[in-house]
């Protein structure tokens, strides 16, 4: 049960990434605006990318939470 739930949880960042990096959400960034002198679109894409990497790193490097064995 727990394993299935974990599998489903693992899908969440992936689905989020698919949505964030695709049409139509990507159009949010597609405008003639600069951030600190840089065009918004590449900055946003690299930004989303960096956040995703950080997310995977956080999940992957976190020590597995030791569940107390059940029982009374």
């Amino acid at each position: 049960m727990n394993r299935k739930r974990n599998t489903r949880l693992a899908l969440v960042p992936c689905v989020a990434a698919v949505l964030l990096l695709n049409f139509p959400l990507i159009l949010v960034w597609d405008r003639d605006v600069t951030v600190a002198g840089l065009p918004l679109l590449p900055v946003a894409l690299f930004g989303i990318w960096a956040v995703l990497i950080a997310l995977v790193a956080l999940i992957g490097e976190a020590r597995p939470v030791r569940r107390r064995p059940d029982g009374g």
Binding site: T7, A10, L11, P13, C14, A17, V18, L21, L41, P42, L45, W49, L52, I53, V56
Partner: peptide
């Protein structure tokens, strides 16, 4: 930015690495 999808794809694949 059209060079990017080629490298964003692996990101998606790695998000599914555990699966």
């Amino acid at each position: 930015v059209w060079f990017l999808p080629t490298y964003l794809g692996p990101m998606l694949a790695m998000l599914l690495a555990g699966v």
